[in-house]
Design a protein around this nucleic acid. Structure first.
Lengths: 212, 212
DNA sequence: GCGTGTGAACACCTTCACAGCA
DNA sequence: TGCTGTGAAGGTGTTCACACGC
């Protein structure tokens, strides 16, 4: 459709999967790719791949497919992996520590992990040292971080969220399983890990099979 | 609608949020709750709460709302938190270690964390000791685990998945950002942590604001 | 009056199926 | 011939708005 503004959220959510699949193809030396191949890599239907890509213009060649390099480059621009995104993680507990390593790759760079517990300030998390929570605003300004990750207990989540917003953060990824409030110009996404287990358990219990 | 079979996936995904909100209300000593209150707690619209709950029967009282205890109990049955769900985590890296603690609560119990690295076998993760990966099947059988969590590098994910299936696991939660293959009677859910960051970065870059 | 339960409208997302072009 | 791009159809999810019962 070539209406590059207003790309559907569902399409946006799949872009990183396409990028990953394309990177695999590049590594394999492939130069062209069909929607079927991309669909296999992303675990979806070919028609959906074509619909998704059509939002970015007329990219393919009928009878042939898509040019791997061109497509990779175009999607890279949109997923913005041509720049480095400095991110700050609040909470150096188990989850925050894991994310410090997990998120420190690709177009993202974990520039700081902050925590309110003085005992762990100064210890390493991935490639950075844990910073005191009082220095949150300074740290964010210093590194020009635009994305903040909330990995603190539920009780502290809203407060941390407010602090991040006050410090100029525009995008927040929260792992606290509650509904947080942010100003309308700040984008917030929440990942509820326990929810995924609940969904599995729901279906499992529908089978009528008892756990041991 | 009172058609307790075939509850929409979107509704199922929200059940754990309702349960959490109800638990908060119980703690506050509240005995009744309106769809508005539940909506506030879950971060959604009241009409959606009513639609969701209507799938489980006629539960509310017009002009009053829902009985907190009754509703909590009913949803608890469906989310299956009246039983204990033994889960096995494969991969004792940063993520697996975090999940070992994160998932060891509520109706879930982490009964084992397995890893292929002999050097870390025997060390603690949350309340359990890391078990050698070769003992995966035995461990699963021993504890009657039905849910398996895949927290290993992408390259190893499909293999681990196959092992879990072979060991009798019926539900798998994967954190590997690839499309895994499982038999049709095994339910698989994939959490792609990097995808969430990509979505934030996409919108952030649409604003036309450069990272520092 | 107040808040639920729900038909109807709406919005979004995916799949189908095929015309059109290399 | 092979595979894209897309209109049309089908499906799912959410919101509206109001009748109904406490």
């Amino acid at each position: 459709m070539t209406a590059m503004d207003m790309i559907p959220p569902a399409t946006i959510a799949r872009l990183s999967r396409y990028v990953r699949t394309l990177d695999d193809l590049v590594a394999d030396g492939r130069t062209t790719v069909s929607s079927q191949d991309l669909a296999d890599g992303a675990g979806i239907q070919p028609a959906l791949v074509r619909r998704d890509l059509s939002w970015f213009g007329t990219l393919g060649t009928r009878g042939v497919g898509y040019d791997v390099a061109t497509l990779r480059s175009l999607l890279g621009q949109h997923v913005a992996d041509d720049r480095l995104w400095p991110i700050v993680i609040v909470g150096a507990g188990n989850l925050g520590s894991a994310l410090a390593r997990q998120f420190d790759r690709n177009p993202f760079r974990v520039v700081a992990v902050v925590d309110s517990n003085p005992d762990i300030v100064g210890t390493m998390r991935g490639s950075v040292v844990v910073t005191p929570q009082g220095r949150l605003a300074v740290t964010i300004a210093e590194h020009g971080a635009l994305i903040g990750v909330v990995a603190v207990p539920v009780e502290a989540a809203q407060g941390v969220c407010d602090d991040l917003v006050a410090a100029g953060i525009r995008s927040i990824l929260s792992f606290a399983p509650i509904s947080l409030t942010v100003p309308p110009d700040v984008q917030l996404r929440t990942v509820d890990l326990a929810q995924e287990l609940s969904i599995l358990a729901f279906h499992e219990s529908q089978r009528g099979i008892d756990p041991a």
